[in-house]
Design a protein around this nucleic acid. Structure first.
Lengths: 140, 140
DNA sequence: CTGTATCCTTAGGGATACTG
DNA sequence: CAGTATCCCTAAGGATACAG
């Protein structure tokens, strides 16, 4: 526990994983972003049944990372309100792409659905371009 | 260990988390997708220093989920080759959005960088639209 | 209702030795 | 080199009780 943000590397994918790479954090962000939830009890009520200690821990981490901000409900001073900071709102495109991917591959059958098949060749070509760029960058 | 894919809910975000919601899986996908790595030793050599047991476990899971496919290197029959299936290649947009997000928020300073600021209002409006849609859907 | 705290079990994962 | 296997410790997390 010496270092809360260990930083295994400076890769952007790794940075994201160290920010929200666990089984719970993105569910809280989903609730804030898509379901307009904003209180501790709201998050507890979600289908995945997060436990109180995990929820408290993740909310604290999200606050420390500047993704979530905690404020007092002015109409009910005992109640806290959690909301997304701009940094948290910027996760929207990631959330949308995740939703698209999961929608294509159904949890039960694992079968690909057709609605994205038309872009398959473009996607493949883009991966090849990126890899070619990476290899030539390493040679230099 | 009765159930390898426990399925806490049928939310698409949750499906993604149960597919690759851990600290290591996305790094393997990154190596396959962007760095053209394809062998066990290639993955072991990455900066984040994944350990052998974790790597073997994640490769097996990725295979079971149909994200990665394992085949024999025909020029060197003792060598296995890992590559992305179409389902794995479909993770590209997610990976790109993650890279953009991490690029905007530097791991060291946490400071937002300016190059995406112009879309901030659009993003905020989109979140509001989605939440409004969610709330009206629940009322029905 | 909003959290904290505690207890306890399991899963994650590092280190290292070992096998084909 | 491509994995397996084992040892062992720490982190994750479920259940539940408790406090403001």
């Amino acid at each position: 526990m010496l270092d809360k943000f260990p930083c295994r590397s400076h890769c952007p994918i790794n940075y994201a994983l160290e920010s929200f790479g666990d089984k719970w954090t993105l569910l809280i962000i989903r609730d804030l972003m898509f379901k307009a939830k904003q209180s501790y009890g709201d998050f507890l009520a979600s289908n995945e049944k997060i436990s109180t200690n995990i929820l408290a821990d993740r909310l604290k981490r999200l606050e420390e990372m500047g993704i979530v901000i905690k404020s007092v409900n002015e109409t009910n001073r005992t109640k806290m309100i959690y909301s997304l900071t701009p940094k948290g709102q910027d996760l929207l495109p990631i959330m949308l792409e995740i939703t698209k991917w999961s929608g294509k591959y159904d949890a039960q059958t694992n079968a690909p659905k057709p609605f994205l098949d038309s872009i398959e060749n473009d996607r493949l070509r883009l991966i090849e371009d990126i890899q070619a760029g990476w290899k030539s960058a390493k040679k230099q």
